[in-house]
Design a protein around this nucleic acid. Structure first.
Length: 384
DNA sequence: CGTCCACGTCTAC
DNA sequence: TAGACCTGGACGG
């Protein structure tokens, strides 16, 4: 679920479903979650939500009543980060989703439950918390201060990195994630591995024309020239497109994922190139990769890829000459990284993530509660 | 069955 | 700059 748009959509979801609902009792955490307990209990309280970048804040607000007047119950804020798989769900008590890790119970007759659901458990929450210190202004809803924060700190070494990596730095780009960086750079034809400072210096502190009529034509048109829409403006506008689509954003599990998928022009799109950045994350792009592209990934651990015609542009660039993707029309193609080499000695290394704990004694703990949901059919990368 | 991959942080060597 | 932290779907043999 979770880049800036998904977090914001989650806050809208909470506000919609919790409208008029009164919650009661303690907030309960799943047994398996390693996050902290939420020491809040209240006879009657309401829940509302707000988002900022890649965080959502829930406010638990005690309802005043004659009965419990003077009970001195105070409101509590809880700030959530969603990790790779967090979202909110509102269900009946006996339909608790699998991987529901924090639960708020309504006072209704058949009780309903607001759940923070998080399959991979990379998400986290902080009771009594404010927005995480060190995260910058929201790219969507604090545009002017976001812009100013970036442009007045260009001497920061963070901007010595390639632009595609700097875009994931939440100190400056709170809300940008892996699909957004690809979509944003793609629209401006900016090679992902150009130094960030180079791309950003020269942009005006004030985004004149953000709302005036000057750039109207270009803005209306999807085809953004670099003059009509600079990088920072697109860091604001592109995520808002996702919000305004009204779906759920990135969420392959859901049926309405197809709208979002159709919206993607670059990320995970057939015909696009991809390469692994210096942090081990997949960067999707087209055209040149830029001068700071990771060199043939060798390093200590030999990463065995490679017969010569690996289509995954790992060594980047020259492999595919021109794949013109007509707008809207996705090429069928080899991209998608569907193609993989069989190699004997891989398995030695992983760059990121997912190292199996083969019989290391560790077993996966089963989550509590809930029945697995039936999932609707997956949409696939390649042709239709 | 096994491997690879996924919307993100975190801390520790 | 590696890993650790997790589950599960797609795909290959």
């Amino acid at each position: 679920m979770p880049e800036g748009p998904e977090l914001h959509l989650a806050s809208l979801f909470v506000n919609r479903v919790c409208e008029g609902v009164v919650f009661t009792g303690p907030v309960r955490k799943s047994v398996v979650s390693k996050n902290c307990d939420v020491a809040f209990t209240c006879e009657a309280y309401r829940i509302s939500a707000a988002s900022r970048g890649k965080e959502v804040k829930l406010t638990l607000m005690p309802v005043k009543s004659d009965v419990n007047e003077g009970s001195a119950e105070r409101p509590m804020d809880i700030v959530f980060r969603f990790g790779m798989s967090g979202y909110f769900q509102f269900t009946s008590e006996d339909e608790l989703p699998k991987h529901s890790h924090l639960r708020f119970f309504s006072n209704e007759k058949p009780c309903r439950v607001l759940s923070f659901v998080d399959t991979r458990r990379f998400g986290s929450w902080q009771p009594n918390g404010g927005w995480q210190p060190g995260r910058g202004p929201c790219i969507m809803f604090e545009y002017e201060s976001f812009r100013k924060n970036v442009l007045s700190n260009l001497s920061d070494r963070a901007f010595e990195k390639p632009i595609c990596e700097a875009l994931l730095n939440q100190t400056y780009f709170n809300g940008i994630g892996n699909y957004l960086r690809a979509e944003i750079l793609f629209r401006l034809n900016i090679p992902p591995f150009v130094q960030a400072r180079t791309v950003l210096e020269g942009l005006a502190l004030e985004d004149l024309g953000a709302d005036d009529t000057t750039g109207k034509e270009e803005l209306a048109d999807e085809k953004c020239t670099s003059r009509s829409a600079d990088l920072l403006r697109l860091c604001h506008a592109v995520p808002l497109e996702v919000v305004n689509m009204g779906g759920k954003g990135y969420d392959p599990q859901k049926a309405d994922y197809s709208d979002f998928q159709a919206w993607l022009r670059c990320y995970n799109v057939a015909g696009m190139k991809s390469t692994i950045d210096h942090n081990g994350r997949t960067m999707w792009f087209s055209g040149d990769s830029g001068p700071m592209a990771p060199k043939a990934r060798k390093s200590t651990k030999a990463r065995k890829r490679a017969t010569k015609e690996d289509t995954h542009a790992d060594t980047v660039a020259e492999v595919v000459s021109k794949n013109k993707t007509a707008k809207g029309v996705k090429q069928e193609g080899e991209a998608g990284s569907r193609k993989r080499n069989n190699n004997q000695e891989v398995q030695v290394t992983r760059t990121r993530d997912n190292i199996r704990c083969l019989r290391s004694g560790k077993t996966r703990e089963a989550d509590t509660a809930g029945e697995p949901r039936k999932r609707s059919s997956r949409t696939r990368l390649s042709s239709q």
